[in-house]
C-alpha cells in the first residue's frame, strides 16, 4: 500500500508545524506550502493525493486556488480548512470535497482526510 501524500497549504507556520507532526504520526507523507505560489509550484510537480487548503492565505484567497486545482484535476480531493465557518455560504467553497472549521482538536480534519482519500482510491 502506498503512503498518501497530503499537501497542507496555510500561511500560519504554527499550523504547518502541527500538521507535520500530527499527520506524520498518522503515516501520511506531509508536504507544506505557506503561499499560493508555493502550492502551485508543488502541485505542478504532481504526486499529491490530497490538498488541505486554508481559505485566508494572507492577502490571497484559498478559494481561488481551489478553483484552479479543480479546473486542472477535478478528481484531486481538496479539504477546506478555515477559522471562519461562514465561508461555507460561498459557492466557490462548494467545489471542495470537505469543509472543516479549524480547531486545536484535529480529529475532524483527520477523519475528513481519511474519508476523501478512501473515496478517491
Amino acid at each position: 500500500m502506498t503512503v498518501a501524500r497530503v499537501l497542507f497549504v496555510d500561511d500560519e507556520e504554527g499550523f504547518l508545524e502541527l500538521y507535520r507532526s500530527a499527520f506524520g504520526r498518522e503515516g501520511y507523507t506531509v508536504e507544506t506550502a505557506a503561499t499560493m505560489d508555493e502550492a502551485r509550484a508543488r502541485l505542478a510537480r504532481g504526486g499529491v493525493d490530497l490538498v488541505v487548503l486554508d481559505i485566508r492565505l494572507g492577502e490571497s484567497s484559498g478559494l481561488e486556488l481551489l478553483r484552479e486545482i479543480k479546473a486542472a484535476d477535478a478528481r484531486l480531493p481538496v479539504v477546506l480548512s478555515t477559522a471562519y465557518a461562514r465561508y461555507q455560504d460561498d459557492f466557490s467553497s462548494w467545489l471542495a470535497d470537505a469543509y472543516i472549521v479549524k480547531s486545536s482538536d484535529l480529529g475532524e480534519l483527520k477523519r475528513a482526510v481519511a474519508r476523501c482519500l478512501e473515496t478517491t482510491s
Binding site: 500560519e12 499550523f15 502541527l18 500530527a22 477559522a83 471562519y84 465557518a85 480547531s103 486545536s104 484535529l106
Partner: peptide, 24 residues
Amino acid sequence: LETARTLAHDLKNPLAIAGGIARE
C-alpha cells in the same frame, strides 16, 4: 461580518495552533 471573519482568523487561529501543538 467582517469583524467576525477577522476575529476568527486573528483569535481562533493562534488559539487553535497553541491548543493543537499542546495536544501533540
